[in-house]
Design a protein around this nucleic acid. Structure first.
Lengths: 191, 191
DNA sequence: ACCAAGTATGTACCACCGTACGCATATTCC
DNA sequence: GGAATATGCGTACGGTGGTACATACTTGGT
């Protein structure tokens, strides 16, 4: 009873990618079946076929974002060995080479906002945050990890608001350094 | 030529308040003329009369939020005399007595998102941020002020995502303390 | 060749949206 | 009391939204 293979196996993922593009460019409020279909270059019926309602489409799109985003800025942090490494990795993740693009930040913000009304997306966000905290706690106390996480998000938000201003690297560095040092002093001195 | 006094002088502000309520509860995407009118208990025509298009209604609503929000958490900071006072005021503004409600944070987040596509609202947000920085710079270096601002926003955002978890006051205190201390050490020692 | 079932699409609802506009009402000036 | 003007309201129009669904197409088994 194996009948009917997909004619276009890529279609589903293409639709999801298109959804993220629309969300990044015009926000979730613009992410309609029709708009996404146009973006993906597929007919309307195709989107409703793969995703029976719009909520599941959008949630699925956010999931793919999470899966793609996580490893990118996680691994430099995982590899950090000294406090200096940690600070450098954090700076890079905030405004350096491993930092998210403005588009990514925008999608992330839309996700936050959507999460305020969608328990599913709220769960996704908490997963993402928890994953980040797990990594940070390898090098920092729980308190410091939480503070660092909040600060990074604050700066990403700043970048989204002031598109053209580049964050001053020294400033970012000093702030993370202060939080990491705090974590070090409250840390039980190892033998 | 002063003819026709408003029959209901409160109406305009009532509509603005209703708009903020809708935005807080259901998001800007739900803030339609009709929905706002229903919330305010006035007919549709009444909203279109006072605000010729929806954009100006929403921007006006955000403006009233700004005007109401600013003094609340600004004055404790202005009165802070020592670094300890500053830290205490920041903690209070983050999760204490002067902190915004969850509804306020939600509206603020919606504002951020809306600002991504509305230059007017983006301007409002920058004003708000600049006002905050001006106050913070009375006690802190520019770098520290920016870091503190970002961190506070990060924690507000955290509160919005994890509604029931209360932020640990000690943790928040320590983080601000670390940033303020950093500012103190980089500060030119006064005679 | 034929059938069954999964895949893919076009069309058609119905609800809601912003906005336009004509009409009713209240207020002030003369 | 009227005229003028600001206030307040209801309806209607064009457009777009999610979703339902009947229809076609493609494929694999027989």
């Amino acid at each position: 009873m194996r009948k009917g293979k997909p004619n276009d196996p890529e279609r589903r993922t293409r639709i999801l990618r298109a959804a993220l593009e629309v969300i990044a460019m015009e926000g979730v409020h613009a992410a309609s079946y029709r708009r996404i279909a146009a973006q993906a270059g597929v007919p309307l019926g195709s989107t409703t076929y793969y995703f029976s309602d719009l909520e599941t489409l959008i949630v699925s799109a956010f999931k793919t974002l999470r899966d793609g985003l996580e490893p990118r800025y996680a691994s430099p942090l995982r590899d950090a060995r000294t406090d200096d490494d940690v600070v450098d990795a954090l700076v890079a993740a905030t405004c350096g080479s491993t930092a998210p693009t403005l588009d990514d930040i925008r999608i992330y913000e839309e996700m936050h906002r959507y999460g305020a009304r969608s328990p599913q997306v709220a769960g996704l966000l908490r997963d993402l945050q928890e994953a980040s905290l797990v990594i940070l706690r390898r090098s920092l106390s729980d308190s410091a990890a939480r503070a660092v996480d909040a600060l990074m998000w604050g700066w990403w938000s700043y970048r989204a608001l002031n598109e053209h201003d580049r964050l001053d690297t020294g400033m970012v560095h000093d702030a993370y350094r202060a939080l990491v040092t705090m974590a070090a002093t409250e840390r039980v001195p190892q033998k």
